[in-house]
Amino acid sequence: MKIYLKSWFWAALLSFICVVCLIIWFLPKEAGDNVGIYQNGELLYSFTREELEEERSIRIEYNGGINVVEISNGTIRVAEANCPDGDCVSHGPLTRGGAPIVCLPNRLVIRFIDAGTDGQVDAVSGGAG
């Protein structure tokens, strides 16, 4: 009788752990909201979602190249740049589903810090090549 009770206790404990693990497993994977500004692969600035609500403008220089990054209302974008192509400015604000903001001449990247993009895709194939 004693053994039965103990087995029952262990079974209950095991079931409980299983349920907890399953709940954790099926919880929506929270995508990181932190955004980073990188120069040549080095993280210069990082912002949480709350920090992106505070309006500010950051001037970033690289070998004579200049990018002006603007943050407001939860968005981040390159407002001005002196690079020849201006791709970083025409990219518009950073969105979770889209590509990172890249300024090739000034070696600048603005992207979400976690590896994934929007949880919808792992990578994007686009026509730069």
Binding site: H91, G92, G98, A99, A123, S125
Partner: peptide, 18 residues
């Protein structure tokens, strides 16, 4: 399997498909 978005040629924020 990996999920790869194929960028929309008309809107860099969207995909034509995955």
């Amino acid at each position: 399997a990996w999920r790869v978005g194929i960028m929309s040629p008309t809107d860099g924020e969207e995909y034509v498909g995955i």
